[in-house]
Design a protein around this nucleic acid. Structure first.
Lengths: 156, 156
DNA sequence: GTCAATGCAAACATTTTGCAACTCT
DNA sequence: AGAGTTGCAAAATGTTTGCATTGAC
């Protein structure tokens, strides 16, 4: 999500995470809380390494291993999700308490546009029903050219 | 694509690949041809490593590096495409001369169902138009539970 | 003959793991 | 107190690269 979460969202996410951890018999440690906060305040898609740096910039620190161990928990708790664009790399974005959206990815400049995906959700249900499948989430990306790149390319 | 290509498709693909290479000033080498054939005959989604093994089983060989160098060419030539399911791994599937499709992915057993995606293509155009975006391809997956897993889980 | 492609091994980047020390509850 | 967690460094993956040799056109 290209916006930092509001203070309110952060608090709710923290409670949600705590609840999630408790049900699994896990603990809300200082590292986990700090990672959660850093994640919620990031305003773009981020990679594990970038999260580490962002934390260092605000004087927090966590071992890389701890980040890699915490990200899956945040995903399972529904606070972040994993997104993969064209490249090899794995990105994350926070999604707690936000309406679902999908992405338009420009293959030329790498720009990422988001769009609300009500129609996509509807289509998911429809297709899943037809295949006797129980849908939970989806991944949807439209890859092509953003307006600017399309113009530049056709201009030569 | 969970089917080996027909002999006809293979031949056409070979011609297409050759044409593609020629326009780029590249050569159709023995390795490249063998990789192409192996790819077209594979009946599932495959990883680079699996392709290597499949080739060894049929007595063909190519260095891992050659495979990694050839896969992007095959993608650019429109003969295969990259698919990514939940896991970290990168899969490929041949798609030359086949109607586009998308995937239903069972998060429990990993089963992959395919479905024709005419509606998805239409929705892509619609959404892209709204965002002044020029769509070329898309990635779409519905993640959830296949019938069997859904039944097993609700049964406890 | 020329320029590109191959194979190999080394290099890389990212993610995971083992383990002793530590910290939540 | 005790189970889970951390940090570190080492290991494991998956993919890319450099370079001498080989091969296609």
């Amino acid at each position: 999500m290209p916006e930092p979460a509001t203070g309110d969202q952060v608090q709710q996410a923290e409670r949600a995470f705590q609840g999630f951890l408790r049900t699994k018999g896990l603990k809300l440690t200082r590292s986990r809380r700090e990672i959660l906060l850093a994640v919620m305040n990031i305003s773009t898609h981020f990679q594990a390494e970038e999260l580490l740096l962002a934390m260092h910039h605000t004087g927090k620190r966590a071992a890389k291993a701890t980040i890699y161990r915490t990200l899956p928990l945040l995903i399972e708790a529904g606070i972040i999700k994993r997104v993969r664009f064209g490249s090899e790399q794995t990105y994350y974005e926070h999604c707690f308490g936000e309406p679902p959206h999908d992405h338009l990815v420009c293959r030329q400049c790498g720009a990422i546009l988001e769009f609300e995906s009500g129609e996509v959700v509807r289509l998911c249900s429809e297709i899943a029903r037809r295949h006797h499948f129980e849908p939970e989430t989806h991944r949807f990306q439209i890859v092509g050219l953003c307006m600017r790149c399309a113009r530049e390319i056709s201009a030569g």
